[in-house]
Write a protein that binds this DNA or RNA. Structure first.
Length: 333
RNA sequence: CCGCGCUUAGCUCAGCCUGGCAGAGCAGCCGACUGUAGAUCGGCUUGUCCCCCGUUCAAAUCGGGGAGCGCGGACCA
């Protein structure tokens, strides 16, 4: 496959931020056996946001990393996502869906937060971090993550636990979407004050809202693409997506920056998982097209050689293929 | 513990003073135009007016009780 890709390149492709580059280069020297992790609040169905960081984990596994997926039941509880019972029920299903998506079961360790986050030592370290952190800082770190509009005390504890998780899971690299960056920066600032190392972090981009291209895609049902979508659902959602024939759309009338979500999904979801992309196209528009990499597809969309409608057809087909194993698992339950 | 404010469509809110068919903007949906979407036109939908009791021919609106959320104050032994 991509076996000739150099480790650093593999580790950092498609990320929007590396903290710090030197630290990641050091890890890339000897990637075999290095440990990386992502934490997820358990939710019943894997959606395209989860899949984006999962794709990065697959990259890391191919580079030789051991991967830990934290099913963050305690975090979900602290973030007001339900009772422990409800949250734990979904954690198991989520684990299966990650494997169905393509995480190597042999090289992936799934850990439930509650397995270690109540240990006496952990809790004492947590209190030490609380002592080092202002409410304002914790609140800022949670701005992009918290549910509800009023910050709860539990939500101030939340990012500090994320910092400690990095220590207790003994990972070399913390991975997350860009919405996690303030939490990770908080971890880098405060962990040294309790005698721990500042963690190295990798942040993936966020896919823009499918229908407008503005901001980040909501994960609520019907708005995102998830493993419970049927082939027809995916076709319809992709077809309704905002997709001007350019990779760099103009800001909207309110001045908000816009992305092209169709291209983003090709870049971050499809090309990392497929050798080549075939765009099926009726003869009257010129017949099928084949792309080996994202750049050539984006360039063709930009030039007009590839029409958005044809791009969408191909996107829906490849996304469907990525989702199909997880979907079948969900349906057979 | 005390005081103040808020609660009406998916969202932001108007309406309440002075009772009389529950509204606007946005979102959403449907068509037209584009070989996608968006933009632009044209059309359409949306309700436990937080809950209970009372007054009234008639209550989102008035009176009483309660809940949730927010804000402020007090206490500083």
């Amino acid at each position: 496959m991509h076996s000739r890709m150099d480790a650093y390149e593999r580790i950092t492709r498609n990320v929007s931020e590396v903290v710090t580059e030197d630290e990641v280069r050091a890890l890339a020297e000897q990637p075999e056996g290095k440990r990386a992790y992502v934490g997820y609040e358990p939710s019943g169905v894997l959606h395209i946001g989860h899949m984006l960081t999962a794709t990065k984990l697959i990259d890391l596994q191919e580079a030789g990393f051991e991967v830990t997926v934290l099913l963050a039941d305690v975090h979900a509880y602290l973030n007001d996502k339900g009772t422990f019972e409800e949250i734990r029920e979904t954690a198991d299903r989520m684990r299966e869906q990650f494997v169905a998506y393509g995480l190597d079961e042999e090289r992936t360790e799934f850990v439930l937060g509650s397995e270690f986050q109540f240990d006496r030592e952990y809790v004492l370290d947590l209190h030490a971090l609380e002592l080092e952190t202002s409410m304002a800082r914790a609140e800022r770190a949670m701005a992009e993550i918290k549910s509800g509009e009023t910050a709860k005390v539990s939500q101030a504890v939340y990012p500090l636990m994320q910092a400690l998780d990095i220590v207790y899971l003994d990972v070399d690299l913390a991975v997350g979407g860009m919405e996690q960056r303030k939490v990770h920066m908080l971890a880098r600032d405060t962990l040294p004050s309790i005698g721990e190392e500042a963690p190295t972090c990798l942040h993936t981009p966020l896919i823009a809202d499918l229908s407008t291209g503005v901001g980040k895609m909501s994960s609520s049902a019907g708005v995102t693409i998830s493993m419970e979508d049927s082939t027809a659902d995916i076709r319809e959602k992709v077809n309704r997506a905002y997709c001007p024939p350019t990779r760099d759309p103009e800001p909207d009338d309110d001045g908000n920056e816009r992305e092209n979500p169709v291209l983003q999904i090709f870049e971050y979801h499809v090309f990392p998982r497929f050798e080549a992309v075939v765009v099926e196209r009726p003869e009257k528009y010129g017949g099928d097209l084949t792309y080996d990499d994202y750049e050539s597809l984006a360039a063709d969309l930009e030039s007009g050689e590839l029409h958005p409608a044809d791009a969408k057809g191909a996107l829906a087909a490849y996304l469907d293929e990525l989702i199909a194993p997880g979907r079948e698992m969900i349906r057979s339950e």
